[in-house]
């Protein structure tokens, strides 16, 4: 059974998440490929081999920007139900993180500069054993999820207090 075939009602991301992923990928590549190109042009005499390598690097970079956000977008999904939060993501490696709702300690909403342009946020849930982040959520959706989870945490804390 593939991770994909598990019978869970996953939610896929909104369309603008893919654009955000692409812009993020471009930003990362710009910070990596541009300095390499500039340094190569300054430090080395660009013969045929050097030029070919540089062209190949840029071709790979462009392929990365086109393909990776698409695959990541198609793979990314999450599910929040009464029992657990599940987040599935990945490009080559697919990972699925599963957190029982009752383990939640803290909820945090955050937004990076690119996220702000696309009006998306990320919800980070913290447990005693680490964090799990649901990324590329619309602002309203992130707020809605955070509020629902906050309520669940409070309910659990109240139940624990009663059971003592």
């Amino acid at each position: 059974m593939d991770i994909d075939e598990k019978n869970i009602n996953y939610v896929k991301l909104e369309k603008n998440a893919k654009r955000c992923m692409r812009i993020s990928a471009m930003a990362v590549l710009a910070t990596v490929c541009l300095p390499i190109t500039v340094l190569a042009l300054i430090l080395f005499d660009m013969n045929a081999v050097g030029t070919t390598i540089l062209v190949l690097v840029w071709a790979l970079a462009i392929a990365y920007v086109i393909a990776v956000p698409h695959v990541r977008y198609e793979r990314y999904r999450y599910c929040i139900d009464e029992e657990a939060i599940r987040v599935r993501q990945g490009f080559i490696w697919i990972t699925e993180q599963i957190v029982p709702i009752e383990r939640l300690h803290k909820i945090r909403i955050s937004q990076g500069p690119v996220d702000r342009i696309f009006k998306i946020s990320r919800v980070c849930v913290t447990t005693a054993g680490g964090d799990v982040t649901i990324k590329f959520l619309k602002d309203e959706k992130a707020a809605e999820i955070a509020e629902a989870l906050k309520k669940k945490i409070n309910d659990i804390a109240a139940m624990e207090r009663e059971s003592r």
């Binding site: 593939d2 490696w93 957190v99 383990r103």
Partner: peptide, 22 residues
């Protein structure tokens, strides 16, 4: 606390996975 399941392309073909329990 958290279960992480990971599938490498090769493990996906073999229907197996690894991961970590936090």
């Amino acid at each position: 606390q958290v279960l992480n399941i990971t599938q490498h392309p090769a493990s996906r073909r073999l229907d197996i996975c690894d991961g970590a329990v936090m």
